[in-house]
Design a protein around this nucleic acid. Structure first.
Lengths: 339, 339
DNA sequence: AAAATTAATGTAAGCGCTTGCAATTGTCAA
DNA sequence: TTGACAATTGCAAGCGCTTACATTAATTTT
């Protein structure tokens, strides 16, 4: 079935009556080849249906034009959207995307990173900061530039392209508190191995502290990233006495699950219970009431991350971090607590 | 910054006091190497932090263990979910995934396919059947196995892993007609360049014909894959006289958009207007009422597609197509028409 | 018109790995 | 002990491309 005799550079050279070097140059730096030679070469390429051998190219040129990304999962709007933009950008730049997903598991992520590097990725996109130093050393030793997205930290040796989860969550919590809520529930994603989720919890805690609200007033439940779990969680929260008047959720999926369950329990959102989200993905406007949530510019983040990575690969230097500013979108799921 | 002197096979060989051939064999067929030699080699590898050069390997071995996928977009639950399962499966098999997205554009897809092949993908996942013969010829000539997913056709030379969009849509339409609807609206995704969308429309048409309902009773609008467009579309459909009693949507996103708009127009779903979806993605249970829709086992499809591709690459033969059976999930968005 | 530049091409040495084949070592029956 | 055979290992020829350097052709300068 296979035809193992694809045309090579040499065949093209022969057909065009030039040396292989000239063909190579016609491909990689056409400006350095005389017009008519170039035309002849291109004709030969077309005639033979030639396309360069990737391995040979990578071997000789020491670069693959391949950029890797390791994300927790593709099956999740927030990464999918950002990744799509990331891909569009690097594709426009003539590179291709190699993806792997870690299923939110640290050891799997490490393995995937090593695999991507072994596969020739010459730059890598990672989500968040939370991983062993070994990996950062490994990347440094191999001279592979990387960007940490979906998070942002000042004065770091890493290049972050993302937002400050801590302050974003804190801002949302402040808005909640200013409305008069003081008995708070929170449903967070699993914080183990997840710096973003962790920072969001910390942000909420800090807001409470600044408002002199005792830490016991915050009832926190962690659940996996699935809206059914959030349903169970809110049921549990609402069983508390006194019952919280608002539930701050670590992301929109959890918020949606919480809203659904609250409604099916016969509560009105937000009159009886306010619920807030985080991310501003599509579902937040599908649920009723629409979610008051923190808007994250995922596409923009993906695009910028790609640009940083491309720049770092090109210049061999560390690109400065880029901070994106989340903004709170007020829709209908948050209001003042009932008297 | 970069350290350009990574250890090579030769360094390892020297360290372990064996030939490069033996090191290579220790890596690729450890059984053919004596126990103690193997141990020595592995120690050397660890000591030096060696990891094989991808390009060299690909060049010498003529395979990359890389599988490509070209999907319309990653930013869409139906592909994201299937792709995630696809990735998990090939990853488990020691291959990595190279992805590209075509933004639903045929000419871009062609370019992406060629790029992936040039990048060394040794098998490819494609969505649907709708593309020029040139590409199929190109893949055949290069001996690259491929699977067409998200669609299924009998007696084809291609390996399909998917479902029959035509009959799935027809089944849904039959259910609608059996309920007594005879003035039908339909909102379809863009059918240009999209065989799945087209087949769904044809399925609905065929159901009408079999129920002896004149074709004029079907009002069809095509819109891009965004729920706002579906909102505008349903508004237009509802302005017809007589007004349809049901709107069949080509996918869940459109159905959600339609439901939202209908409700905001003051109509009750399904009492005043029934609306059906297709795909059964997460949003179909988030909207209220929950969607009556066609369930597609996306994860299963992704996994099976990966298995077929791996088998084809391994055996060098064409794998038989696999048909998945969609089932209609009845939830709350479809009921009998009002008298 | 010859010399000095500059532009275009060719030559050939790798890049790091795999693998067919040859050489070596070890094992076992006779 | 020896020869036959199997199990290991080494040798070395590529795999198809890039690129530093050398060479030749085309332009410009004086």
């Amino acid at each position: 079935m296979r035809n193992h005799s694809l045309p090579t550079l040499e065949d093209v050279a022969q057909e065009a009556r030039v040396s292989t070097a000239t063909v190579s140059r016609s491909l990689n730096s056409p400006d350095s080849v005389a017009e008519k030679t170039l035309l002849r070469v291109q004709a030969a390429i077309r005639l033979l249906g030639y396309s360069p051998n990737f391995g040979a190219r990578a071997l000789a040129a020491k670069r693959t034009n391949t950029i890797g990304a390791v994300i927790p999962t593709m099956d999740n709007a927030i990464f999918a959207r950002g990744l799509q933009a990331f891909q569009e950008t690097i594709s426009k730049n003539g590179s291709t995307l190699l993806v792997a997903s870690s299923s939110y598991r640290l050891e799997l992520e490490e393995e995937q990173i090593r695999t991507l590097v072994a596969r020739g990725a010459d730059a890598i996109l990672l989500i968040g900061e939370n991983r062993s130093d070994d990996i950062y050393e490994f990347l440094a030793k191999r001279g592979i530039p990387y960007v940490l997205a979906w998070n942002y930290r000042q004065n770091s040796d890493h290049c972050f392209v993302g937002f400050n989860n801590h302050t974003a969550a804190k801002d949302m919590a402040k808005k909640v508190l200013n409305l008069g809520h003081f008995k708070i529930g929170m449903i967070s994603g699993l914080t183990h191995d997840n710096d973003r989720a962790r920072d969001r919890v910390l942000g909420v805690r800090e807001a409470l502290a600044e408002h002199d609200i005792p830490a016991e007033n915050l009832a926190l439940i962690e659940v996996p990233y699935e809206f059914e779990y959030a349903g169970d969680a809110i049921e549990e929260l609402l069983a508390n006495n006194p019952r919280p008047t608002v539930v701050i959720c670590g992301n929109d999926i959890l918020a949606v699950g919480a809203v659904k369950r609250a409604k099916s329990m016969g509560l009105r959102v937000p009159e009886d219970i306010s619920i807030t989200g985080f991310d501003d993905i599509e579902v937040s406007t599908i649920i009723e009431p629409e979610l008051t949530t923190v808007h994250i510019p995922h596409r923009k983040m993906g695009r910028i991350a790609a640009e940083c990575l491309l720049a770092m690969r090109r210049d061999g230097s560390l690109s400065p971090s880029k901070e994106l500013k989340p903004i709170i979108i007020e829709r209908g799921s948050l209001c003042e607590p009932r008297k």
